[in-house]
Design a protein around this nucleic acid. Sequence first.
DNA 1: CGTTCTATTGACATCATTCAACGCCGGTGG
DNA 2: CCACCGGCGTTGAATGATGTCAATAGAACG
Lengths: 234, 234
Amino acid sequence: MSVQISSQLGVCQRCGSSDVCFTGAYKANAQSMPHKTYQRKSSLYFMGDPFTAIYILRSGSAKSFINTAEGNEQISKFYFSGDMIGLEGFDNMIHTQSVSFLETSSVCRISLPEFNRAMSESHEVRQRLLKSMSHSIIDEQLLLMSMTQYSSEQRLLKFLLDLSARFKQSGLSEQIFHLTMTRIDIANFLGLAIETISRLLTKMDSQGLIKVNNRQITLCDISHLRRCLVKQVA
Amino acid sequence: MSVQISSQLGVCQRCGSSDVCFTGAYKANAQSMPHKTYQRKSSLYFMGDPFTAIYILRSGSAKSFINTAEGNEQISKFYFSGDMIGLEGFDNMIHTQSVSFLETSSVCRISLPEFNRAMSESHEVRQRLLKSMSHSIIDEQLLLMSMTQYSSEQRLLKFLLDLSARFKQSGLSEQIFHLTMTRIDIANFLGLAIETISRLLTKMDSQGLIKVNNRQITLCDISHLRRCLVKQVA
DNA sequence: CGTTCTATTGACATCATTCAACGCCGGTGG
DNA sequence: CCACCGGCGTTGAATGATGTCAATAGAACG
């Protein structure tokens, strides 16, 4: 249900991460050190760049966006640790979006040859990738549904709950967490006005549903909030 | 740009279709006849069904939808000939949505064992699938963007243009086509009220942008309509 | 030939945006 | 150290777009 989150295949073992790497089955020769650190506001790649690798976010957070014909930036997804980045490149072997980091982050790079070799050699790798992309498609559709069917308050609530679930999955608190993105980013992503985001956060705070302290969010009763998402539609 | 359209890998050669089949590389023994015809309103599978195969739509059209907690149906995608159906199943090996047909349609079934064999044997098959899923992800994101950023009129316009592009791709007219789905389905998919759809169609007709005759739509000036999509945002 | 599903149209209500003003906070230079 | 400045965030009032409710007509199907 963590909808705005990309495909997850686990973090690469070559990087020493504890999680399982989808290329793990194919015992990479680990002379190369494929991970790299990026600063806040720096970019992993830009729209139009040739597609040469996929990436796994080891730590930190990022956003992907496209530059619209009108010169605006439109955020399509937020990424957190464990997420795969770059899968959209397979279509035309060119990146169709840009990715930049919201905070200092570490990334594992898997070149296309490495990737293809793993794909050809291991059924398990293929299954993981299919599962991951399948999951990604499902999430996109759920997100799309939320966008078209939910009220602004429900959209924001879903966004917060998705973040919460994502943080929990990363071993962080699902109840108290820090937003690494600005209100502007949130509004852009959710298709709402910044003012609306601000008003809704204030409102939900005063209703006792959440606590807002700048970018620190506390979800008071997660299961109650989940019920809100369902009930208010009926 | 045909956004509401699923991954396309071409129609299976085993079915005698002229298009290239993604399992073509692995020369299936063609004793089985994997294609089947479905009537309007019949279902290919239901949400919760075990995931045993993927399908390619040979002719006709279909919609996929999920049944929400409130008992409503939420349409997530429309399918046309050449589209792959069922990829969401890989995540949990269970279908997460239902698929039903909008008209009499023909479908090619590719069982999971067949699929897996093709995937393991051919790099080309893998590339096609990745490309296809990648394309699907891009489309979903573009659609999501339209939904969050566009006005109701732009959403509907984009929907019609996507359909047009899709029909052209299938060798039909991109200018005059027949809607196989109801206004109710369109409204559901676009997250708008049926009345809004009706009003917008009437309005665009009276403005001379399109001609509406029940379910037959004529796009008067496609390139002008495309420009409308961009300009109105600025 | 009637019943049901689908589609259109009008009046009204509501939600979210827009515009505008202001507060806060961190950085930077005097 | 303080003052200024730009980016981020909050709040209010007015506007506009879209939904809801209701009535009716047309189309499809048995």
